[in-house]
């Protein structure tokens, strides 16, 4: 309906920690602060699934967080994008085979982008978000055709 060129300029993020060690969470917070300042791309941390467009998920999904993650995903209106930040969110690796871990965000909800690194560097997350904005634009265009 509205040109995707406009809509892609305003990705609002939701950050949810599903059992990470805090390392990636800190780097996501570092993104909002003067050195990295993702507000340049229009990104704002909304912390509310109903306002969010991009979900930044950190951590291997623990059994207790699993249900909450699915809830958050369902509450986010379309078109949305899920970015798994860090190794453990991508495939659960440092915590592989732990009894309370599902192992990776993609075991629970569909993931669009994976950010490697333990913990992933802010530059990597920023790169993922910028790529994600491109993917999001394609998603918006596909939504528009439907």
């Amino acid at each position: 309906m509205i040109s995707a060129k406009w809509t892609k300029r305003s990705p609002w993020i939701l950050h949810f920690d599903t059992g990470s060690c805090n390392g990636c969470d800190l780097e996501i917070w570092a993104l909002l602060t003067p050195r990295y300042d993702v507000e340049r791309f229009g990104m704002v941390n909304k912390a509310n699934p109903k306002h969010a467009d991009i979900l930044l998920i950190t951590g291997p999904v623990t059994r207790k967080a699993e249900e909450r993650l699915v809830n958050l995903y369902n509450q986010t209106p379309d078109p949305k994008l899920v970015i798994a930040c860090g190794d453990c969110a991508s495939n659960g690796v440092p915590f592989f085979d732990c009894y309370n871990v599902c192992g990776g965000v993609d075991k629970v909800i569909p993931v669009d982008l994976y950010v490697p690194g333990c913990s992933c560097r802010p530059e990597a997350i920023m790169d993922a978000v910028v790529q994600g904005i491109q993917m999001w634009q394609e998603k918006v265009e596909r939504e528009g055709e439907r």
């Binding site: 059992g19 990470s20 951590g59 291997p60 623990t62 207790k64 967080a65 732990c98 009894y99 309370n100």
Partner: peptide
């Protein structure tokens, strides 16, 4: 609590 429990002591 428990949203973050990964079973670290076991691992």
């Amino acid at each position: 609590f428990g949203y973050n429990h990964r079973g670290m002591e076991h691992a």
